[in-house]
Nucleic acid binder design. Structure first.
Lengths: 124, 124
DNA sequence: CGATCATTAAACCATTCGGTTGACAATTGG
DNA sequence: CCAATTGTCAACCGAATGGTTTAATGATCG
């Protein structure tokens, strides 16, 4: 399965911890992009964008295919799966609560009457 | 639903991008811990550990309850759910399921669709 | 060949990060 | 009251981060 090496996770989460880089990933989710295309939406130099791409590449999130003088980047989702796997360890902590939240949100609709009006509140 | 604010995601992923902080979260997953207890496994000063806890707190991952002179920390999984939600946008890229959206986005070279359901496994 | 385009390299700068140490505040217990 | 415990604060340090600008590299094209 996917390895949960701490160094790897450091790289992945660090790469994800920047708005510019996440926007680049969102762009790459639509398909292959050259370095210039990836850099275009941002108010920064091409060199700066190139560095961001290198960070994504170092995290394994981006694959680079050099064709002539243009570098074509594509999304490699494997590290995202690794991050997801790490998050999965903690999923039990929020699934239950989100279920409760969801129930609370649906309270706008016909409110489900609490079957157990015990005075004690749950969790938290 | 959970908000996907970029500043918030920056904070969350930055907090997760450090081995020490992830270890602290793993510890907190077992239950409440004081600052000293959280710091104890690490070969660093209490002040350094305290800073890590503050980063986790800033990301909303840790809740602090001051009782007397001891600060009791507990895990707040909400930001993990937010991170999971962000990852969810890309989940289709590694689950192997080709849904209509991906087909529409990647309008080039559709590979023959494998019919494997591939049940998602949670690691460890 | 020579100009141009796509991209990286290198040097630099300000800020942040992760860590230290020492002083400080507050609570607790003898 | 006094001393120990718990934890933060403040100043500092070296390294990394995110950005710039100015070359330099390499492919393409007239």
């Amino acid at each position: 399965m996917v390895e949960l090496d701490s160094q790897t996770l450091d790289c992945i989460f660090h790469a994800l911890g920047d708005t510019t880089r996440r926007a680049m990933l969102r762009d790459l989710a639509q398909g292959e992009r050259t370095v210039s295309e990836l850099a275009e939406p941002f108010a920064m130099s091409l060199a700066a964008a190139s560095k961001h791409i290198r960070v994504l590449e170092a995290a394994g999130l981006v694959r680079r295919d050099i064709r002539g003088r243009t570098h074509h980047c594509s999304l490699d989702p494997t590290p995202l799966a690794t991050a997801d796997q790490w998050l999965g360890i903690y999923r039990r902590f929020w699934t239950g609560r989100l279920d409760a939240l969801e129930a609370a949100l649906r309270a706008e609709a016909p409110p489900p009457p609490p079957k157990k009006p015990l005075p004690g509140k749950e969790g938290e």
